[in-house]
Amino acid sequence: MAKPGFEQLVKENQEPLRRFLLNLCGGDSSLSDDIAQEAFLKAYLNFSSFKGDAKFSTWLFRIACNSFYDHLRKRQLPVEEMSRPGVIYSASSEQIHSPGLRNQELYLALSQLKIEEKTAILLFYMEDRTLKEISKITEMPENTVKSHLFRAKSKMSDYLKRIGYER
């Protein structure tokens, strides 16, 4: 792949990918940017293995997901621990509702979910991906994605009710 072509792909995909990883990493922007960079470099070096049967962004997100899971395995951190923004637990409910902490509210809500559920719900609602695309990104059958999504919605719904989220 020519470098100008790659530059264009970076321009088009860097924001959604970095946002997705940032949310997946519970707000750790330096970690999410490292993983995003790693994903782009892997995509650049292995572009010949991109078959073109899916969108480039789907392939890129799949590489990023795998890099994220590799990172968890290397650090041998329990997945729930990894995605938990510890600071948040000391914040009061008033603080959580203040505009400055709006994203902390999201990270806290996401920390209630398992990693597969979190991945599915972020891709579906935040990144507007279809079930088929999520299935390709996560390398899970569509029905499995549906069940993760269903459980994620149910847990989030319970959590948001509990904290009195009403806008």
Partner: peptide, 20 residues
């Protein structure tokens, strides 16, 4: 709606330049 409200735009902050 909850996800829509929390969808933030990510600033480049030199990411693209570092990558390239």
């Amino acid at each position: 709606k909850f996800f829509g409200e929390h969808k933030e735009s990510i600033e480049d902050r030199g990411f693209e330049a570092r990558l390239l």
